[in-house]
Simulated scan of single mutants.
Amino acid sequence: MDTESTEKSQRGIQSVEVGSEILLALTYSDSPMPLKEVARVTGMPPAKLFPYLVSLIKLQLVQRVEPSGDYAPGPLALRLGLYGLQRLNPLREAEADVLALASKTGQSVFLTTWGPNGPVVVRQEDPSYPLHLTLRVGTIMSLVNTATGRLFGAHMPEPLVRKALDDEGIRLSGATDLKSADKARLFKEYQQIREEGMTRTAGQPLPGVNAIAAPVFMFNGTIALAITLVGPAGTFDTRWDGELARTLSQTTTDLSYRLGYKAMQDSEA
């Protein structure tokens, strides 16, 4: 093999890569950006940055907004974004992540979405060792007693969750006869889940089984999916700073990013 020619074929165009950094900076802003701000975010001197902006404007990837003259994504960038949104399929996008998580963690992985009767399992990937669970594709998860269901309870619109709680008894390990005080306590727990970013169960509702669930968000901030790791309590670490939680969190963050969600990047800007 000609390693020299292979290396050359993999070498990128620096100006294109610089242009992508500029576009990335503009997409992370909620409003048009002045030249000095774009320079600050990209780390480029304004004199070096300006010619790139001129070229990107000619390509309709960037536009100047009058009367301020600030910079924003252009018509072609917006068309490309709309094209991407039309092709988004969270379940298809998550397929490789589910397989990778099962291989890397050695745990069962469940993919769940919101269905007509609440959170429903739509994908399951099991480890090589046997783990006897009542979970399977089509299982509807409790909004009260399961990690996956509680995650959806925390992120779905509250009126929809309150209505769904009226039918909680039909779900796996569903609670019955929920009182007003029970629901009030539950919604406080939902708030804590939103703050922590994930949820977990240890030895309940299934004895000897632990679980950690994390959300996958769409571009508009709504929850699209939950990915849940499930395994035997004796070997399953539920600590937030443990390897399983960190691996799951990184996976769902990356997947959310691919679906257009950018809350994490905005908070770091």
Rank of each mutant, 00 (worst) to 15 (best):
T3Q: 12
S5W: 04
S5Q: 14
T6I: 15
T6S: 13
K8C: 08
R11K: 15
Q14L: 12
Q14T: 06
S15Y: 01
E17N: 02
G19M: 08
S20Y: 11
I22G: 04
A25C: 11
T27C: 11
D30K: 07
S31I: 04
P32F: 12
P34I: 09
V38G: 01
A39C: 01
R40N: 13
V41Y: 09
V41M: 04
P46Y: 10
K48I: 09
K48G: 01
L49W: 03
F50G: 00
F50I: 00
F50N: 12
P51M: 08
P51T: 04
L53W: 08
L53Y: 07
L56I: 05
I57H: 10
K58F: 07
K58I: 01
Q60S: 14
R64W: 09
V65T: 12
D70Y: 14
P73T: 06
A77M: 15
A77F: 13
L78S: 13
L80R: 03
G81M: 03
Y83G: 05
Y83M: 12
L85N: 03
R87A: 14
L88S: 05
P90E: 04
E93C: 01
A94D: 04
D97S: 15
V98Y: 02
A100P: 01
A100Y: 07
L101H: 05
L101S: 05
T105N: 06
G106T: 03
Q107P: 00
S108N: 08
S108K: 02
T113P: 00
W114F: 11
P116A: 15
G118L: 10
P119Y: 06
P119I: 04
V120T: 14
E125Y: 00
E125A: 09
S128M: 10
Y129I: 13
T134G: 12
T134K: 13
R136W: 02
I140V: 15
S142Q: 08
S142K: 02
S142W: 04
L143H: 08
T146M: 08
A147Q: 05
T148I: 09
G149P: 00
L151V: 05
F152E: 01
F152A: 06
H155M: 06
M156C: 03
P157M: 12
E158F: 03
V161D: 01
K163E: 14
A164K: 02
A164F: 04
G169V: 14
R171F: 12
L172Q: 07
T176M: 10
D177Y: 12
K179C: 09
K179Y: 05
A184H: 12
K188W: 00
K188V: 06
K188F: 02
E189S: 13
E196P: 00
E196H: 09
G197Y: 09
A202C: 09
G203R: 07
G208R: 11
G208E: 06
I212K: 01
P215V: 10
I223Q: 04
L225Q: 03
I227D: 08
P232Y: 03
A233S: 15
A233K: 13
G234F: 04
R239V: 02
W240Q: 14
W240I: 08
W240P: 10
G242L: 11
G242P: 09
E243T: 10
E243N: 11
L244K: 01
S249P: 00
S249F: 06
T251W: 04
T252D: 09
T253W: 05
D254H: 15
L255R: 11
L259R: 06
G260L: 11
Y261R: 10
Q265E: 14
D266Q: 15
S267E: 11
